[in-house]
Structures are given as structure tokens and as C-alpha cells.
């Protein structure tokens, strides 16, 4: 029973991370039907910058917003130079490769300047675990699922209640019509990538005390976050968060009752099966093919 609660809690923590990363993919995908394939690296960028500022003596309360802002700038750059010039319709893969290339450069640069070994970003909430029904968890870890849900609510509100958000939604649904109605599609794309990267940096900083900071910290999270977004169906934010949590918990339970290798084999196997059963994702809308 304790183990059951423990796996669920741990699963919600890692699943919350998948969900936040996946939400970043969702924001980008909605705007331009393309993503920053190196989105995982924005997690790394955000937390590396936060640590670097901390080392330079900047208090974290100032350093963290600075790091997030800088990552948003990185997102703008990615959209402008790596995605926009190479995104020509559904079968183009140029943006995939250009963003991967930039991700490689960023990782290499950080490895050289920051070092390859893992470093820590301290959090006062990582001191001692608290007990919930016999299962232990650090208070800081609880922030992750809470943040995932809060971000979802924020995103929901933003898309529904603000002009900017509505304009973005219009683009996501009918890009051509939105353009005809005078919505600046390009500006929205830039904003989306900046927002996604800021979100990524935030996720990285939030995760840093739990998973530590290194040049390659975002790789696996980025990949799994992307897979989660796809299984959920790229068009549904709520579905993405639910899938993120579910996948995190599933992983922990496979680990608990099987082992780590089974985790990857079964986890990815389930992904393939789900995509076969729900070709547009679990929560995705069917894209009608009109003759």
C-alpha cells in the first residue's frame, strides 16, 4: 500500500515534468505546426543560466526571472532563424533538423563553458521529505504537479480570455482565415515560441533541485515530453497534462513491479499501441480528409 502511494506520488512528479515540457510543444505546435525539437535544451538553458547568475552573486529571486527572460529570447531566435525559413507544410522536416543542430551547438557550448558534470541548484524545500500515507516526498517535488495544473489553468484562461490568446487560437484552427482577418500570424509565432521557451526554462528551474543541472539534462525530458504531447494529440492542452501524469505514473509502476528496462520497452510499446488505436492522439481531434 505504501509502495502504491509512493509510486503514484513519484509518478505525478515526473509526469508533471513531462506535462509541462509537453505543454511547451503544444504552444509551439498550435502556432506554426512545427516545434523546437531541442525544446528539452531550453530546460537546460534556463537552469544553467540561473545557476551561473547565482554563482555570479545575483540573488535567485532576480536571477530566475532573468534566466527565464533570456530563454524566451532564445525561443524568439529559434523561431525566427531555425523554424520560419524552413517550415513549408506538413511534410517538411527542415525545421526538425535545424532545431536539432542548434540544440547540439547549445549543449556543446554549455558543456565547455559550464562543465560536463552535474551541478546543483539549491531549494529550501529539498531539505527533508514529508510523509503522505507512509510514502515520502520532498515538498519541492509537490510543486511540480501543482505547477503543471496551474500552468494548464493559466494557459486555458489566456487562450479564452485575452485578445492575444484568442488570436492564437484562431491561428491554430484556421491559419489562413486568421491571416485574412488581419491577425499577424508571424508575430503570434514569435510570441508562441518565446512563451514555450520561457515555460521550458521555468520547468528546468523547477526541476533543477530534483534532477540536477547538466548540459544534457533536457535530452530525455524533451524527448519524452514530445512523445507525451503526440500521444495526447497535439491539439488538447488538458489531454496533454492528463497524459503526462498518466505516463509518469505508468513508468513508476512498471519500475515498481518490473524493472527499469521494462519501463522503456513497455512504456514505448504502449505509446505505439495507443497511436495505432488513436491515430490523432488520445485527445486529438480527427482531421477530416476532404476529397
Amino acid at each position: 500500500m505504501t509502495a502504491f502511494v509512493q509510486y503514484t506520488l513519484s509518478g505525478l512528479v515526473i509526469g508533471g515534468l513531462y506535462a509541462i515540457v509537453a505543454l511547451g510543444f503544444y504552444i509551439m505546435w498550435s502556432a506554426v505546426r512545427a516545434v523546437n525539437f531541442a525544446h528539452g535544451d531550453t530546460l537546460m538553458l534556463g537552469s544553467v543560466l540561473a545557476i551561473a547568475l547565482m554563482w555570479a552573486g545575483v540573488p535567485l529571486l532576480v536571477g530566475i526571472p532573468l534566466a527565464i527572460a533570456a530563454s524566451a529570447g532564445f525561443g524568439l531566435l529559434i523561431e525566427r532563424i531555425a523554424v520560419r525559413p524552413l517550415n513549408h507544410g506538413p511534410s517538411s522536416v527542415g525545421w526538425m533538423l535545424s532545431t536539432i543542430a542548434i540544440g547540439l551547438m547549445l549543449e556543446a557550448f554549455v558543456t565547455i563553458t559550464f562543465g560536463a558534470d552535474p551541478r546543483s541548484l539549491p531549494s529550501p524545500l529539498m531539505g527533508a521529505p514529508i510523509s503522505i500515507a507512509g510514502a515520502g516526498i520532498f515538498p519541492h517535488e509537490l510543486l511540480v504537479p501543482v505547477a503543471a495544473v496551474a500552468l494548464l489553468a493559466l494557459l486555458d484562461w489566456f487562450y479564452r480570455a485575452t485578445m492575444l490568446g484568442r488570436a492564437m487560437r484562431a491561428i491554430a484552427q484556421k491559419p489562413v482565415a486568421a491571416g485574412l482577418m488581419g491577425i499577424d500570424v508571424r508575430r503570434m509565432a514569435l510570441i508562441s515560441f518565446a512563451a514555450a521557451s520561457a515555460l521550458g526554462a521555468f520547468a528546468g528551474i523547477l526541476a533543477a533541485p530534483i534532477i540536477q543541472v547538466s548540459a544534457t539534462m533536457g535530452l530525455l525530458l524533451g524527448l519524452k515530453g514530445f512523445l507525451v504531447a503526440i500521444i495526447a494529440g497535439m491539439s488538447n492542452a488538458r489531454g496533454i497534462v492528463i497524459t503526462g501524469f498518466a505516463y509518469g505514473v505508468l513508468e513508476r509502476f512498471i519500475e515498481g513491479f518490473g524493472n527499469t528496462s521494462l519501463r522503456e520497452v513497455l512504456g514505448f510499446g504502449v505509446m505505439i499501441l495507443l497511436l495505432l488505436m488513436f491515430p490523432n492522439g488520445l485527445f486529438g481531434q480527427r482531421e477530416v480528409n476532404k476529397v
Partner: peptide, 16 residues
């Protein structure tokens, strides 16, 4: 004998 992978974040299952 318990095993984990590089970059794993949580080893509670093995330790339990």
C-alpha cells in the same frame, strides 16, 4: 541485484 539507467531521477522502486 537492482539496476537503474543513466539519468534516472527516482530509484525508490529499487530501494523499496
Amino acid at each position: 541485484f537492482e539496476v537503474f539507467k543513466w539519468d534516472d531521477r527516482d530509484m525508490t522502486a529499487q530501494l523499496i
